[in-house]
Computed example of a mutant assay.
Amino acid sequence: MKVGVIGLGYWGPNLVRNFLSTPGVERVYGCDLDEKRLAFIKSRFPAVEITKDTDFVLRSADIDAVAIATPVATHYPLAKKAIENGKHVLVEKPLTASVKEAEDLINLAEKNKKVLMVDHTFIYTGAVRKIKELIDNGEIGEIYYFDSVRINLGLFQHDVNVIWDLATHDVSIMDFVINSRPVSVSAFGTSHYNGIEDIAYINVNFDNGIIAHFHVSWLAPVKVRRILISGTKKMIIYDDTEPSEKVKIYDKGVVVTSQEGIHRL
């Protein structure tokens, strides 16, 4: 397989590094409009073929798959052209700038029998996969709620708000570990600087009574990456800032007392 990486800024070098270390990947092409980024990639990864020609990467019959790590507004046109030219596509989150664009890409990939994938990295980590295993095995019982906090000071994005930038991580984790269908979503946010929301709260309700809440912010004095999942038997805390023991299980439930006696929920 030969892979092209378009966008060599913040996340692109990580994609290049991982593709180079992936068995079966014969060659990696790195593409960016910035000469300095191209020179940086070439200095770090001499085996990479570098180019400023985006059209070459999207159209070349020699390239089997394309990874896109560019500003969000460019995701749709780049991914669309790549799929139309017979390439599998990996896109950094968020997939597109609108639901309609995302649906168009999904339909196009299905029509052309190509893989279209969003790089929701957390669902491939050992910690999140362990959480899913605990839930699927019934160890924490029936889920009551999913509560997430992802806050820090900056980085302020110029093209998407804090929901699209930060909450997408936790929404992907929620979607991965909870086997229920949401029935309603509400989101509230506000902007303090450039017209793009920098703090927001999201509520999600499920058809079986589970409630999920997300707090995301670029205006916090500390960095917090914490998820709390409460069940009828046990509770889980997932703290991604912990160097070890990211997942902790608490053997705590709820006891209800009444005139008839004590009932453990």
Score class of each variant (00 low, 15 high):
Gly86Arg: 07
His169Glu: 12
Gly231Leu: 10
Ile135Val: 07
Asp239Gly: 00
Tyr10Pro: 00
Val28Phe: 01
Asn14Val: 13
Val160Tyr: 02
Val183Phe: 00
Tyr124Arg: 03
Lys246Met: 11
Ala39Glu: 15
Asp198Cys: 04
Gly12Val: 04
Val5Phe: 04
Tyr144Ala: 03
Ile68Ala: 09
Val247Gly: 04
Glu142Asn: 11
Thr241Leu: 08
Asn152Cys: 12
Leu15Tyr: 06
Asp147Ser: 10
Ser148Gly: 10
Val224Arg: 11
Met117Leu: 13
Thr22Ile: 03
Val57Gly: 06
Arg225Gly: 03
Phe40Arg: 14
Thr168Met: 10
Leu228Asp: 09
Val3Cys: 09
Lys81Phe: 03
Ile83Leu: 15
His213Arg: 14
Val72Asn: 14
Arg181Trp: 01
Gly209His: 02
Asn18Ile: 10
Gly4Glu: 06
Phe214Asp: 13
Lys132Cys: 03
Thr51Ala: 07
Tyr144Asp: 06
Asn152Ala: 15
Gly195Ile: 05
Glu260Gly: 05
Gly12Glu: 11
Phe56Thr: 04
Thr257Asp: 04
Met174Ala: 14
Ile131Arg: 07
Val256Asp: 04
Val149Tyr: 00
Gly209Ile: 05
Gln157His: 12
Thr96Phe: 00
Asp119His: 08
Arg181Gln: 06
Ala127Asp: 07
Asp165Val: 06
Glu101Asp: 12
Leu90Met: 13
Ile210Cys: 08
Arg27Ser: 12
Arg181His: 00
Asn152Gln: 14
